[in-house]
Amino acid sequence: MKETPPSAALTRRELLLRAAGAAALAALSGGAGWFFHNRRLVPPSRTVTTITPFLVPDTASEMVIARGTDGAALVRAAVAGLGGIARFVKPGDRVLVKPNCAFDRPPHLGATTSPEVLGEVVRLCVAAGALVRVTDNPINDAEGCFVKSGLKDATIKAGGELWLPAPALFRMTRIGTQKITAWDALATPLVWATKVIGVPTVKSHNLCGASLTMKNWYGFLGNARSRLHQSIHEAVADLAQFITPTLVVLDGMRMLVRNGPTGGSAADVMPGNVVAAGTDQVALDTFGAELLGLAPHEVAYLGLAAQLGVGIMDRTKLRIMKEVRA
């Protein structure tokens, strides 16, 4: 039987109440200053959910770069290059897809994942016999972001369902080892899922240089997460430990090369005409940084994540590495 996702969006009041609750919790934990002084976050004395890895055995260390002009065709080509979606998604799987839907901006501004790329990922998973839900916890009104970005339409037309963040879906969740050991996260969808697929976009970020695969998991977090920007590279490395995805499809169709992560002008967007699919977050993000003209050392979280064993920066050393045209 098809399940119906809860669709209640966070109201502004709920968000504020949650923020107020978080502030009170922080105060009880020793004052607001505790976060900023090079100390690890200590999880409050609540039950902490652990998210299990979603990587399929024998699919680690793989990446395919597909170049061309048709986003959907590039997704198909990249996934086919990895051996097809059936290696990653089986009939009956519950697939949670996480695009970047961070802002209520139209797709041409490059601040969010391209609808055609997300749509094709959902379509492939549905065709593989999975139940597919798409979620993100944008800082703005979630439904408004999904509508304006075109990602709601893309999801529904491809046979997926939208799972908007609601307060009840968040739980204190184990994240990483560097700066955030635990945080309020969209745990319910992550526990529901048997597979997780990230579909980030390639964009600049004024604090950490680039927002790509690992930074995209930020959208699973709740609460006053902007505080994480104080130590953003460590926080992103933590996010890379938090989610071990089944697959990542990195959308480089429209690249926000300046003024990210929000952008705001078509002049900040360049056509990338590339999609990369794979399972190594560090290799994918190193490639994404290159697309933005950034050397790996200019994006500190790449090295941090590599040190933590999340992946490798040199994609030539991956077990499978291909380039295809579509």
Partner: peptide, 11 residues
Amino acid sequence: MYERIDGRASF
């Protein structure tokens, strides 16, 4: 400001 523009606020 981060509530609407998130990581761009510091800019």
